[in-house]
Design a protein around this nucleic acid. Structure first.
Lengths: 341, 341
DNA sequence: TTGTAAGCGTTATCAC
DNA sequence: GTGATAACGCTTACAA
């Protein structure tokens, strides 16, 4: 006990060579039935399990895909991962998960670790990272795909959606509901391209309608229920009180609803609040959140599929653009159209 | 590109032996400064990263801990994992995450995979699994800890809480609020000891008060918002309509609130609904859920700590019982005490 | 159909 | 301080 049996041990027990045991494991067809039976019996009796390190060394393949996500605490990443894993599991591939805590230096470190482990492929979130990380990835020739974002002219293989366009569409939606005094609670934008793009998308739409997001009406805060609540309370104290608050994700939005309620405002009668992501929280919040539905499961499945292709075909891979969709629930209210634009 | 540099390559480039390069990497103090500088330059220039497989073979250690959870789609596991990972990361240990989908056979398979990868330790959820899995674990001598459950007489190292006692306490709480017609929406109990224990705990408390949970008042369903809603709608159609519904977790409870509302009932005026876990959903639901707070972050941190001890000291490890706590929010209403028991 | 033996990239035990 | 060299467990020509 404690001393793990090796191929040698199995070979001895079955009175064959290690090569034969290896064949039983990998190409059982090449072994005579009786020999095979003897070997299999020995394997079972000893509780033998192949040694991954030895195999990795001999094969230069690990059947492992690595992924670096910002955090597992955000349900949307966890759920995307679940989908990713389901598809990888079908190909008998395991997932090595690392987190960066939204910190680029930590992410770079995690990428090194994954490469060091000879993962067959890597999944990353978003495009924003130092050149060195991309260089390292390329010099090792390890295929990688980027999730949660998609741009027409991205030099990388992306399986995701256009954050900017999606946010712009949501802002348009809010504007066409009659809102003019609009505020935003954004996630931290530093080295988070999804947050940046969503903010830009909102700005795009406002600009198109001759509106703007002045500093006072933009709150930037880490994702969290409390942070959303606090930001909303603050925005609602402003002299030019917003009639609608766009949030960088559903957690912030759910928090914002709570903050608004505590400050004595009724959603959406007094203030409209919309989210982004469409997680369970959006459906449970009261009023239920009008939000942008992100196809997180499809993203996971497609991402896995594309990466698997790159791994087996050694091909360049291809990006996939996924569609988002505005889910109209009840947190967005309609305002009478103002007389003058 | 594509062909990863090895220790040999670095050694050649730095005009030293592989042994010296290895020393620079592992025990830099033993190498003369100038030699070290030369080697480090070569490492940087070549973009060398140690080969994990080779190292695993030579060291018989992988700096990896494996964990098998039912699913990442449930936020509570994802969050527990996040905490687990934070503590492991401090010890430079990586997490290999596998999911079982609440299926014991798949879990057994995943345990084999983890052992095959020579993980230094394993984290499992709950105690319910076939003897063979435990035998395999023991025969390999790989330390493991069990999370999410704790029993005084468990033969395993557990870092968790007493699910039965916690559920009993919640049921007592509901009873002492005056409820007598009580129903439960449980998660699937087959090979899920947490779900079983929570159900038993509720039964314990009811029994103590001369009450019982007849078949009609017990719904067993997979975790999910829709499942909770459906189960609640069904229970509320019963002739002996329950005044309180205990749920196996917060997702079911949040769904139940939705189901009750859609069926025209007001929570908690018409029916009280309580949950278990205390995830974000509980706070966001309207009315906010009265639920059992599970210290998922502490569980992750403590679990990691205990496992790390077992790995380094080779000691037997020790279980840790964590306390749960009832969080009173607004989904539990008080009923006038009935005249007769 | 089976066995022999080289090689995968690292670390560790020796000498020097 | 540094260099040979023998493990570590596995796969895979090549031989038999």
């Amino acid at each position: 006990m404690g001393d793990r049996p090796t191929l040698q041990d199995v070979a001895r027990a079955a009175r064959v060579s290690t090569a034969t045991v290896s064949r039983v494991l990998n190409t059982p067809g090449q072994v005579r039935v009786e020999t095979r039976a003897r070997v299999e019996a020995a394997i079972a009796r000893l509780g033998y399990l192949p040694h991954f390190g030895g195999r990795a060394l001999a094969l230069n393949r690990t059947n492992t895909v690595g992924v670096v996500i910002p955090t597992m605490a955000n349900a949307i990443f966890a759920r995307g991962l679940q989908a990713l894993q389901e598809t990888l599991a079908e190909a008998e591939i395991n997932l090595l998960i690392a987190t960066s805590g939204y910190d680029v230096a930590r992410e770079a470190e995690q990428i090194r670790t994954l490469l060091s482990r000879s993962v067959d492929g890597i999944v990353l979130i978003g495009e924003a990272r130092p050149r060195e990380s991309y260089d390292l990835l390329n010099s090792h020739g390890t295929p990688f795909v980027i999730l949660w974002t998609w741009r027409a002219d991205s030099p990388y293989i992306c399986v995701g959606f256009d954050n900017r366009a999606a946010a712009r569409a949501m802002a348009e939606h809010v504007i066409s509901a009659g809102h003019r005094r609009i505020a935003m609670i954004s996630g931290l934008t530093e080295s988070n391209d999804r947050a940046q793009l969503r903010l830009e998308g909102v700005r795009d739409a406002l600009h198109l309608h001759g509106l703007a997001l002045d500093g006072a009406h933009l709150a930037e805060t880490p994702y969290g229920l409390d942070q959303g609540a606090e930001a909303a309370a603050h925005l609602l104290m402003l002299p030019q009180r917003p009639t609608a608050i766009l949030c960088g994700n559903d957690v912030l939005a759910a928090g914002a609803i709570e903050g608004a309620r505590r400050a004595g405002f009724v959603v959406p009668a007094d203030v409209s609040i919309v989210g982004f992501d469409d997680v369970e929280l959006a459906r449970v919040a009261q009023p239920p959140l009008t939000t942008v539905h992100v196809p997180h499961r499809r993203m996971g499945h497609e991402g896995a599929r594309v990466l698997l292709e790159m791994i087996s075909d050694q091909g360049p891979g291809h990006s996939v653009e996924l569609e988002t969709e505005i889910v109209d629930r009840a947190s967005l209210g309609r305002l009478p159209q103002p007389q003058s634009a």
